[in-house]
């Protein structure tokens, strides 16, 4: 045992991690263990580290993260359900030097807002999309989402999702990756320290791509919803690893810059 007392460690000069200045002091309304909190934090840290608070506009969705504007100290627009990419399109085109990102859940982005996200990505809008996919509608009480896995019970698929009855889970991120306007598509998670670090790098890359004006950056964060899944936060993380990652495998789906194939440019030329 080292001969230093706790009180001598807890000193201002020894502080190595504290809350980002971009996060407000508002207590988050999310359930214990919710991936939204961690995802918010990573976005906040990226904004702080890039020094772009004064130039960042966030677009919040309808869903659990509708109140994201209470937690990140930046200017926000609160969108109608699914329409965040439309707002972002206009904000970015009218203020091209600003950083514009949408923050959307799977109900918002992959169900009601399918048209808006596909077309914004297809136009190659220079925006960053943070897509939090927990395979359920959290805010309305755990109903089936487009991304709900086969067999997964929800409030509106109480006996488990059945393809014949409810259709198949939608891999919208794979669809998005096909679009020539999209520069960067990746699927991450935030449930472990290593995963969170990788996700943060991906988010940072997504924001940096806006400076390069190379098209849309799309970052899916495979997430948990312990209230909707009716599991403890820790058990939710395990369930996610065992089930969600099989259907929604983590990793980059597209990196036009790395692959030196800014696809949309080929179309233009």
């Amino acid at each position: 045992m080292a001969d230093i007392e706790i009180k001598d460690i807890i000193k201002k000069e020894n502080l190595v991690y504290s809350k980002s200045k971009i996060l407000t002091d508002n207590e988050m309304h999310y359930c214990p263990g919710c991936s939204h909190g961690t995802s918010h934090k990573l976005v906040a840290e990226v904004i702080e580290e890039m020094g772009i608070q004064e130039k960042t506009i966030g677009i919040s969705p309808v869903g659990c993260s509708v109140l994201a504007y209470n937690y990140l100290d930046i200017d926000w627009q609160q969108a109608a359900h699914g329409r965040a990419p439309a707002l972002a399109t206009a904000a970015k085109r009218l203020m091209p030097d600003h950083f514009v990102f949408t923050y959307q859940g799977d109900g918002d982005l992959a169900s009601i807002g399918t048209a808006e996200i596909l077309h914004a990505c297809n136009r190659g809008e220079n925006i960053t999309v943070i897509f939090v996919n927990n395979a359920i509608y959290g805010m309305t009480g755990g109903q089936m989402a487009p991304t709900t896995l086969i067999g997964m019970p929800t409030a509106t698929s109480p006996y488990g999702r059945e393809a014949a009855l409810h259709g198949f889970p939608l891999k919208i991120t794979e669809l998005i990756a096909q679009l020539p306007g999209v520069a960067y598509v990746t699927r991450q998670s935030v449930h472990t320290p290593a995963a969170a670090r990788k996700a943060k790098k991906a988010i940072r890359k997504g924001f940096e791509n806006q400076e390069k004006k190379i098209g849309t950056s799309f970052i899916e964060i495979v997430s948990t919803c312990s209230s909707g899944w009716k599991l403890s936060p820790v058990a939710s993380n395990q369930w996610m690893e065992e089930h969600m990652f099989k259907f929604y495998p983590l990793g980059d789906l597209k990196d036009a810059e790395r692959d030196n194939e800014a696809d949309y440019k080929k179309y233009i030329e």
Partner: peptide
């Protein structure tokens, strides 16, 4: 639907 929401995004700026 997208048009009117683009107005929201632009008007908010």
């Amino acid at each position: 639907v997208a048009s009117i929401n683009m107005l929201y995004g632009g008007a908010a700026c």
